[in-house]
Write a protein that binds this DNA or RNA. Sequence first.
DNA 1: GTGTAATAGTTGATTTTGTAACTAACAAGA
DNA 2: TCTTGTTAGTTACAAAATCAACTATTACAC
Lengths: 150, 150
Amino acid sequence: MPETTPFDLRQFLPYLLNQAAEVSSLEFQQVYKARYGMLRAEWRVLFHLGIHGRMTASAIGRMAKMHKTKISRAVFRLAQRRFLIRTRDDGDRRVEHLELTAQGRAAYADLCRVAQDYDAALIAQLSDREAAVLRGALEKLAAAEPAAFT
Amino acid sequence: MPETTPFDLRQFLPYLLNQAAEVSSLEFQQVYKARYGMLRAEWRVLFHLGIHGRMTASAIGRMAKMHKTKISRAVFRLAQRRFLIRTRDDGDRRVEHLELTAQGRAAYADLCRVAQDYDAALIAQLSDREAAVLRGALEKLAAAEPAAFT
DNA sequence: GTGTAATAGTTGATTTTGTAACTAACAAGA
DNA sequence: TCTTGTTAGTTACAAAATCAACTATTACAC
């Protein structure tokens, strides 16, 4: 059996991803926390509604890969603070449509600007080519079904 | 003022990083949880000790960007289960050196093999060039000081 | 020395998350 | 109509993360 190079955790992809995600999330978190008292889950729900308009909790769950209890609680708090309104579907009374209020849209627009600047600051550390490859690779990894590996 | 392209959260780097990190961590978590009953924080401490040998809790904290209470509790549980031993420094009696036991090293070696396979499975979704650029970019982002952006 | 600040690490209280069980509404076949 | 199964969403309880305050020790200026 050939000598294998010893595996180095510092090259381990989940580890690198976590570190980068941690660093890049933490500072942005300050903003929406300070300005709107939002948690990460709430911010994500807000953004999804901002982007896609009216949608249901489970649709957000599928897109954001968030667990439904997380969403349920985030929606509750966002509704409580009048960032969104919930309306029952007439056809199927299990489902609830979520939509941003004017206040929600204002917060979305505000945070969107900040996010854009922050994104630019992050990207500035990379070359254009690196940034493009990075986004593409992340999209692939995020979209992938959990790989059977063992 | 020129028309700006509307910002798309799906391109937002912290968002993509989180998604990819989430997906890629979750499955691997199954392994160390099932085999050794470890939490993520414990696994990370184990790996750092496996790679670097003897080191202190605060050194791990700096490298892994983990909060010291997280580390404190992880170390406690790892010591409790005989994965590591703690020894007080003679020179500075505040600091404590952490080191894996034989059992700890065995667990490390085992999980390292699994990690390697898992890493390979993730990388298989990307081209060689993509993988290399990805790792480089993630290292830069993880190493970066929080950028002032606003 | 003495006082002040800094560092290593722990602990307790509070928040947040995750797991599992639950209600309610629909769907579809016997 | 009466199961049986599925989906949307919530809730209760347990597990974990976070924050602030704490002890113990060292460093350093005076």
